[in-house]
Design a protein around this nucleic acid. Structure first.
Length: 262
DNA sequence: ATGGTAGCGCTGCTA
């Protein structure tokens, strides 16, 4: 049975409940993974989503920052949540669909402004978070699993508007790209979006600070969909809904989609 | 070269 999955950093699920509903209504993914909900779980407007058929939700939340949720039309059972780097943040939740597919939803730390852990503690926490993800997937190899989320790293040269100009900018530095590759390889993960769309510039995030984000188009691909090799061949129809970046009161991220024939 | 915008919750922190 095929199912479509989307991942979206929503930057406040309460403020943006209307565009979450717009996405659910117009695009109708079976599963929607959200990051940066910035809300305690009990204040997420679940009734709005249930009214559209999304009657299942698993989530981790905290006041003001971080927060991850999985909205689903299909039954989903929570199977855990990790606190990598011991930050005490709500940055991960995992669930299992009835067909056995496990979905990991991550919000990796952004890492602050300066790409040097000696002067910027947040950058060190980001690298440590990825290292602990790597070790966790290495010790318990995932199967029939999908990993999505805002990983806050644009790994490829064509995942950013200017590789050269972003080499020292947090999200595209070589050490971050290396850490992300190690995490991916430790779990045997396949980058589904790039397997599906191998060529050309691809972005999922455009800064709020640009005068005209669309015209400037200084984007980065920070949001990812990965799958384990036993199911990665079932993935197709990958896309990034750039139009959502232009919706009313938008998130600075656009949703990323993939369909799995499982 | 710098500053630019946005959300939360209440003053500055985070992105």
């Amino acid at each position: 049975m095929p199912f479509t999955l989307a991942t979206w950093n929503i930057n406040s699920v309460r403020l943006r409940a209307p565009i979450v509903c717009k996405l659910l209504s117009e695009e109708a993914p079976d599963v929607l993974c959200l990051q940066e909900c910035k809300s305690p779980v009990d204040k997420i407007p679940v009734e709005d989503f249930a009214a559209l058929g999304y009657t299942h939700m698993i989530a981790r939340g905290q006041k003001g920052y971080n927060g991850v949720a999985i909205l689903s039309r299909l039954p989903i059972e929570e199977v855990g949540s990790e606190d990598f780097a011991s930050l005490g943040h709500a940055r991960h939740i995992a669930g299992r669909l009835e067909n056995g597919t496990v979905i990991h939803n991550f919000y990796v730390p952004a890492g602050g402004d300066v790409p040097d852990r000696e002067v910027n503690e947040k950058f060190g926490q980001k690298l440590d978070y990825l290292t602990e993800m790597r070790d966790w997937f290495h010790s318990d190899k995932p199967q029939k699993s999908i990993l999505v989320g805002d990983l806050n790293i644009a790994p490829r040269e064509d995942d950013v508007w200017s590789h050269k100009q972003l080499l020292k900018v947090v999200s595209h530095t070589p050490i971050e790209v290396e850490h992300l590759a190690e995490t991916r390889d430790a779990g045997g993960w396949v980058d589904v979006t790039r397997a599906d769309i191998p060529d050309g510039q691809l972005y999922s995030w455009w800064s709020y600070r640009a005068r005209d984000w669309d015209a400037a188009d200084k984007g980065r691909r920070l949001d990812h969909i990965w799958a384990t090799p036993d199911i990665s061949n079932a993935a197709h129809s990958s896309r990034i809904l750039r139009a959502a970046r232009g919706w009313d009161k938008p998130s600075d991220h656009a949703p990323v989609f993939a369909t799995f024939d499982l």
